[in-house]
Design a protein around this nucleic acid. Structure first.
Lengths: 135, 135
DNA sequence: CTAACGTACAACCAAATGGTTGTAGATGGA
DNA sequence: TCCATCTACAACCATTTGGTTGTACGTTAG
């Protein structure tokens, strides 16, 4: 088993990424910090919740690799990591490319191996060729 | 416009989307279904958990708009909605474009006022309305 | 008709989340 | 120096989440 991601949640970076993005407050923090680095207390002042709560949100974002913290004096500046967005997009690309591969098989009129019974299949989705029916 | 989720607080489609994608089992279900529609019981047989648990995962995916269910006899076929991946990508694009906008401002040497009422899905904009970062 | 299958849903439980308060350690300014 | 600020973290609480079992209902095969 252990198809691809399942099983080990400890190292599930993709899971942490999407989990962090699933909260509206955290997405807003990202947008604020993308406009310029802000201290945690500065951020906290912008939300109707305690400093500690915002601090936890920042920690979640940090563990997901979406932001980095940098000390400046007694403040801690938070700033988003632009590459992180790219990492999230990559995870989506994996899903989409799988879909595209299926469409290719269909349009190619190839045999449709709809096994999918047990796990352990994953016949190496060979490079999808051409034809990006990209919505 | 329609920067992000805005409007429906409870609805928060983007939140549901990312939340659904944050679970490894659900991402795996997506990958399986993207290769061809499967009945729920067929899916359930592939995971070391109960049928009901898988059924719940499918419900989460469905409410996030990532899959659709279609009846065929006594079975319920699950199939991924390719457009959903595009919707998730769009949400990421919003974040990235914000970052890009900032870079543009920097390179353009424009004044850096953090007005931008485009706060979108922030939860109850506290008291801090508009600029004037008091305190 | 009857039995087996596939689904739906309710009730329940343990663990994780999102929030609170409180306490304590550094740092900078008067 | 003393004090205000900013941060970190622990303890606690309410709600959600992910999982279980059990029951009920429609559909198809014998």
């Amino acid at each position: 088993m252990v198809v691809d991601g399942i099983a080990d949640e400890t190292g599930d970076a993709v899971g942490r990424l999407f989990h962090a993005l699933a909260d509206a407050t955290r997405r807003d923090i990202l947008r604020r910090c993308v406009r310029g680095e802000l201290s945690v207390s500065r951020l906290a002042a912008a939300y109707p919740m305690s400093f500690a709560a915002v601090q936890k949100h920042v920690t979640v974002l940090e563990r997901a690799g979406l932001v980095t913290k940098e000390r400046r004096g007694r403040e801690q500046l938070v700033r988003t990591d632009p590459d992180a967005v790219g990492r999230a997009r990559q995870a989506l690309d994996d899903l989409e490319s799988a879909w595209r591969a299926r469409v290719d098989r269909m349009s190619g009129l190839l045999t449709e191996d709809a096994d999918a019974t047990g796990d352990a299949d994953a016949p190496a989705p060979a490079q999808n060729t051409t034809k990006g029916p990209d919505r």
